[in-house]
Write a protein that binds this DNA or RNA. Sequence first.
RNA 1: UCCCCAGUAGCUCAGUCGGUAGAGCAGAUGGCUGUUAACCAUCGGGUCCGUGGUUCGAGUCCGCGCUGGGGAGCCA
Length: 469
Amino acid sequence: MNSSPSPRKNRRTPIRALLASEQETRGVHLGGWVRTARSGKGVTFLELNDGSCFASLQVVVDGASPAAVDIAGIGTGSCIEVTGDLVASPAAGQRWELKAAGIRLLGSADADYPLQKKRHSLEFLRTIAHLRPRSNTFGAVFRVRNALAFAVHKFFQERGFLYVQTPIITANDCEGAGEMFRVTTLDPKEPPLREGLVAWEEDFFGEKTGLTVSGQLQAELFATAFSDVYTFGPTFRAENSNTSRHVAEFWMIEPEMAFADLRDDCRLAEEFFRYMVVHALENCGEDLKFFNDRIEKGLIDKLGKLVGAEFKIMTYTEAVTRLQKSGEAFSYPLEWGLDLQSEHERFLTEKIVGGPVFVIDYPARIKAFYMRQNDDGRTVAAMDMLVPRVGEIIGGSQREERYDRLERRMGEVGIPLKSLSWYLDIRRWGSCPHAGFGLGFERLLMYITGMENIRDVIPFPRTPGNAKF
RNA sequence: UCCCCAGUAGCUCAGUCGGUAGAGCAGAUGGCUGUUAACCAUCGGGUCCGUGGUUCGAGUCCGCGCUGGGGAGCCA
């Protein structure tokens, strides 16, 4: 994918390409950061990593080589350039090594360098988010993140979905998806007032605006022109959530399909999820092996099982009944009409189904206004996809495409029709059945890497009280 | 936001019954004929999170605060 030679003048070869080499090569040039340096009497070994792959390349500096005079001051964390010959390694542990002819120290790293060659806690590494990409774990995380971001586009583009960039600044604060961050240019000390309240009509956009909590409503508009569309972009929630599953800024994937019902929606979600797992298994083997050994034992086995698993579909009503009959003592109440708690979802997917499951047709009063009302008069065509160990990972629905039904529902839950007139217009002219879902990219990464805290799968996490870096 | 737990060397941690602080790793120096987060020896390294209190005496007990973690809610 990215092993073609660099166009740069110095013709640096990535370590990934050197390690994949078929034969010895003279006169190669590379750069990287020293992971560890070991010195013997007549020879020094430097483990060099440039992020192009998980493995480091062993650079050998013979005491008699001209390069030997240049190794003073090179320790863990130093950035160096090396020229030399790629040769078969005479010792066990690696196939190739680099016999150095010349070394240039570009950036030294002294004893205060925080990322030492030892095991660090993930909590500590979070406090040095500017350096943690140079660690084994985070190198692997961000390579997998890169591979899967590419796979998201690949999946949808292969199926003819149109990629739409929905707005980041929006005036809808009634989507029901969460608290919004405010976007304003008004003076926070002396905002213009009208009858004692902030006069938002004098703000930059002439109305109250914030950062998007979802691109879904706009994606629906595009689905009624391009049939199949998807968004993949940043999403913001100003909730004061302090958990390992929530961040204030995250990336969400939201496909939307015209001429589709809830079953089509479930099928797409299943196909998408499986595709992501297969892509990771086929393209990130070395990184996944590290996660399997050090982060989540049995990870690769889990992913392999998911690829072959049948994704069950169960109605909310049946799920409640089966959970009640299970005899399990739950800490939270469980009865028809109440939302399923995390513990219920986990029990359902792990113990009752033993695999991924879609729960569909939830009571209308616990779900969003835009979900399609079912004929029974009390449920809507919603779906949540649950997977073992994580619980809910995808939430979606068939949308209410009937003007009068949607208008009535908006009235019931108190959403001013005027604010979403454009959303209703889609139902006035050329309406069609459509459905879609939302998937948090970071939660997908958590499932695939086994990382347990969402702050460890996003480069620079934003959480309540923390926007550093 | 609520509940629970934690905060000691650069990092990971120990510190007994309240009696003035310890290990490993990292660093420095020396040794070692090719090592695999090398090994051996020596050395340097502390605002015990902050603050107030109890006590002859607090890393240790109590109050408050801050920071981090786990769980819950909200959700993706």
